[in-house]
Design a protein around this nucleic acid. Structure first.
Lengths: 241, 241
DNA sequence: ACAAATATAATAGTAATACTATCATAATGC
DNA sequence: GCATTATGATAGTATTACTATTATATTTGT
């Protein structure tokens, strides 16, 4: 997806124009038929985000989704072979979108410390709606990512799915930020571990703040999770922010 | 459980004797009938650890468990109202056991820096078998905790279950280590966040090392996860180890 | 504009899952 | 040795996660 993006960047000078033509690309092995390619496919995405955010992934079924979007179970199965694959699609889209936003957010910024700080904010802060992608409600999708995304890889099929490349978006994002850390401190031994623990941790801590508050420290009047990780990451790699 | 433990500690001088009488207590609302109280109950625990570690929690059913231990579905349902509650039992037992080991591991050690270091090792390092608990295979249970424990709270029932007190063991462990952090640096703002992110993170990174190695940095010849967290925690709270 | 191709809806069906219910038998406790 | 309790055997149900078939729209190429 980023290849396409940079390619387009080189051809156009006006970003606003570009943005409306950008599409987040998701690994083709995740779906049977590209949901972006039809009205029904888009309704499946929009509707599943609403429904999963509402009732949770365990209670979510294609039958319920079908009735909520006025279609049928069999039609949905032509797009996704299982509800697990649909969740994988949603989270992959989220990672693709995050990478896209990261690339723009860091464009033309040289100082790696500033780059890293921006990356941390982007990955740990609340998500806002992005009107460039009409049929995706990003904040709602983010709620799903917080509560359900671990389930995407905590299965017995991880190794096979990983071989199929369905997690490359996430891995690329981690690598990208890991590289910034190495620019700041080339000797730091655990850049990927630090980044993945930050991303996963930010989700978990946000979930804890809502449901198991004793497990975290969500202080009033501050964006605790982002502050916590800014402090932690810069101290750990050995540079004051 | 720790109340009982300290009480017994005060009465006996020989720990070895004590240990064989200790039992990890799990919140009564988790089970319908205490599995420790009967041979079948113990077989359910032993057998479910084997089976879940083998086939994963999604594929695990009471029917399969029944056949593997030579009993019936209906009999298992007399102990646990669902497979979710059984997983909750297993993870709660793990947290109770961790707390028990933590208390012993820190006994008579005054220096909070040493106490914290020991706590980090205990929570991030590989788990070894504990022969004081005959029908529980702790390393195998730990594998389940790594791969499945998030599923215990990532459900729509979290709030209700939390109110029922089923997560108190975990919360107590986090509070205990948070207190050590505050002894070292009373001004550190996020002790619980740091501890829970370390515990959860250690599980996730271990899972990544096996299944999605690009997301982490598991360096040869060292216990990377423990080293990573020792370094990270002490730098973050502001004390060299 | 019309046939051909394709997408979707409607309906039905299946094996497995997550339980609940009932009753007989075995083990245990007083 | 009788009452209680635990377990086993068996059956049944609603739901889930699919697959299959056919009919009807809708789109596409010419």
């Amino acid at each position: 997806m980023i290849v396409l993006l940079l390619y387009l960047c080189a051809q156009h000078s006006n970003m606003k124009d570009l943005i409306s033509t950008v599409q987040i690309k998701v690994n083709e092995r995740i779906y049977l038929k590209d949901p972006v390619s039809s009205a029904l496919g888009q309704k499946i995405i929009t509707g599943s985000i609403d429904l999963i955010a509402d009732i949770g992934f365990e209670a979510f079924t294609f039958r319920k989704l079908a009735s909520s979007i006025g279609s049928t179970e069999a039609s949905i199965y032509r797009y996704f072979e299982s509800k697990h694959k649909l969740l994988l699609y949603l989270t992959s889209w989220h990672w693709g979108w995050m990478e896209y936003r990261l690339v723009f957010s860091l464009a033309n910024i040289e100082d790696p410390v500033v780059r890293l700080e921006k990356a941390i904010v982007l990955l740990t802060n609340k998500v806002e709606e992005d009107h460039n992608f009409a049929f995706i409600n990003e904040p709602k999708l983010w709620e799903i990512v917080i509560a359900e995304s671990s389930k995407v890889y905590l299965t017995k099929d991880v190794d096979q799915e990983n071989q199929d490349g369905v997690f490359t978006g996430y891995k690329r994002l981690v690598a990208r930020i890991g590289d910034i850390i190495l620019e700041i401190n080339p000797k730091y031994k655990y850049p990927h571990m630090l980044v993945s623990s930050m991303i996963e941790g930010a989700h978990h801590e946000r979930y804890f703040a809502r449901h198991l508050p004793k497990l975290t420290n969500d202080l009033k009047g501050e964006n605790s999770i982002t502050e916590f990780y800014k402090d932690l990451v810069f101290k750990t790699i050995g540079n004051a922010a």
